[in-house]
């Protein structure tokens, strides 16, 4: 798919004029976490959000996921306003949120148990995901027995299992070492291309953002606003080789500069 076809895709996920204030009362202003954010993700796009810690990235994702109400503005999927969570929007949480009483395998199977999928198919899908995530050997372990990186992989597998239309990923590779991260990134690209899912992903890793996404939103902090929207002009079927191109470095440095300026300002 080339750059030009993107224009033809319908808008899948829209955030319009989103304002989110925490704990504001009559006297106290509360925390203005997000202040007027507009974001659009077209069907089948993979878009990343980068921004300093505390700039409202998780908040934004939670509103799209329907887990928190917007103070003003709204998020919409396929033109329908989000009022609550649903299996059409799979999420990977920053804190993993694994079910501690379920084994790795059972955690991954949770979403499928909520579908009408036949049991045998469910099992096959779970095993395949465990294999890809390198978790087969740990399938019968409880989350408390896993390292941070393993937990993160379980969380990703669990969100991928029901193959949702929209994936909301909150720093899904944050706790992984560089090598595992690369494998996971390529796996995510693979899943994305295969399922045609629409993905909105938060990351701290600028290089990761450039490598994965079609577009990048750079958020400014306090309050969180969209500071810049950077298109990434690489084709969807990209390979790790692009990381060595000048164009890649240019985009990466541009975003890095935007983020650095942000830090200096504070």
């Amino acid at each position: 798919m080339g750059e030009n076809t993107i224009i033809l895709r319908p808008e899948k996920l829209e955030v319009r004029g989103l304002v989110k204030r925490y704990g504001g009362g009559r006297r106290r202003p509360g925390t203005l976490a997000v202040d007027g954010v507009d974001i659009t993700v077209r069907a089948g796009e993979l878009v990343c959000i980068v921004g300093a810690s505390g700039c409202g990235k998780s908040t934004l994702l939670n509103v799209v996921g329907g887990l928190e109400d917007a103070t003003e503005g709204a998020a919409a999927i396929d033109g329908e306003r989000v009022v609550g969570p649903g299996p059409d929007r799979g999420m990977v949480f920053q804190g993993y949120s694994l079910f501690p009483w379920r084994t790795v395998r059972e955690n991954v199977a949770f979403g499928l148990e909520e579908t009408r999928m036949p049991k045998a198919d469910r099992g096959a899908r779970v095993e395949a995901l465990l294999e890809v995530m390198g978790l087969t050997a740990w399938a019968d372990r409880l989350p408390k027995e896993l390292s941070g990186g393993m937990r993160q992989r379980v969380a990703i597998a669990r969100a991928l299992a029901p193959e949702p239309d929209v994936l909301l990923l909150d720093e899904p590779f944050g706790a992984l070492d560089t090598q595992t991260k690369r494998v996971m990134q390529d796996h995510l690209l693979d899943v994305w291309r295969r399922t045609g899912a629409t993905i909105l992903m938060v990351t701290h890793d600028v290089e990761e953002a450039v490598y994965l996404s079609s577009r990048i939103y750079v958020l400014t902090s306090h309050p969180g606003r969209v500071g810049a929207e950077v298109p990434v002009p690489f084709p969807d079927d990209r390979t790790p080789e692009i990381k060595r191109t000048d164009r890649f470095h240019a985009i990466r440095d541009e975003i890095q500069a935007l983020l650095t300026g942000e830090v200096v300002m504070e």
Binding site: N62, P85, P87, R89, F93, S97
Partner: peptide, 21 residues
């Protein structure tokens, strides 16, 4: 934890299923 309930919701569980599961 709130996050576990949220995770279950995004995995397609309804309120009764969240209670039970």
């Amino acid at each position: 934890p709130r996050e576990l309930i949220n995770a279950a919701y995004t995995l397609g569980a309804g309120r009764l299923r969240v209670l039970r599961r």
